[in-house]
Amino acid sequence: MPTSTSRAPGSLGSNGLPSLDALRFIYVTGKGGVGKSTATAALARAMAARGRRVLVCMTNAKERMSGMLGSPPIGPEIVSAAPNIDAVNMEPRKCLEEYGVMILKVKALYKALFENRYVDSFFRAVPGLYEWSMLGKAWYHTTELLSGKTSDDVDAPYADGWKYETVIVDGPATGHGLDMLRVPRVLLDVAPAGPMRKEAERAWRLFQDPSHAGVVMVTLPEEMPANETLELAEGVREMNLPIPRLVVNGLLPPLFQHEQRGLLLARELPLGLTSAHARASREQIQEDALAKLATLKLPTSYLPFLVNQEPSSPQAILALAHHL
């Protein structure tokens, strides 16, 4: 099992953690509502600020990334969203069509295909195909060179460099999130030789390579999200995929010291002091959750809880980027 501490390009980032900058492919996942998109946007900003050319891929999401990056709306075509950051909201039908055009080359053939009235609903119904069309597209962008050619030999030096040095996928919420990651492996099981299988193999090889790819898990310092993160980590590790970083979002800066918390929580307090009691309680829950998460022994980044600004505003994202 690849452990996060044994990653090859062992340069430490400014926060003392193994840097994510060398990764070509990052898949961000976590339960709904924990701030996956926030973490994705902040990570993209952080890497872009360090000079990486980044592509952010949303997986057919309700588009909120543009609000976070302060860019025009992001649709199914790749757009420039911020300095060094391109972004796209992948739409399965369109991904599949792009793929078809690439493979088929003959115009008459793909015209016949995509104009056939059955084909659309056929593709919609083929298990896993929509998921793969998106994941496959994201992977494909890791193979693009600035010259317009492609290569998936991640270690080969190219004079002109990669078009995108890092592709970040803002995955669907857990459950579907892991299901999507599992698709290439299912394809390896069910799909005999063919172009789809070949690509799935290449993509899967990259996803499993701890020096070039990884799953970034996002969570909150609360009881249920922490428990679910332990399960998620288990699922990811079962698939033999590296987890180079855990991102704990919404970390409360403690107001009370440990003993003070104990005093507050041990008492029935009058109404006017309930806000202090509630705060102490949250701090205690956070401490317990962090202890639980620490058992994962993952390099961990903490994003502070923002009281004074909208957490999904471009300013907030830039502030959070400093923590990644």
């Binding site: 078809g100 088929l104 053939l109 056939n116 069910v190």
Partner: peptide, 20 residues
């Protein structure tokens, strides 16, 4: 058209996958 279409689908997914 169908056979043409099928051929195209097979090129994308691999014919053996279609078989399964």
């Amino acid at each position: 058209g169908s056979q043409l279409v099928l051929k195209a689908v097979g090129k994308i997914t691999g014919a053996a996958f279609l078989d399964q």
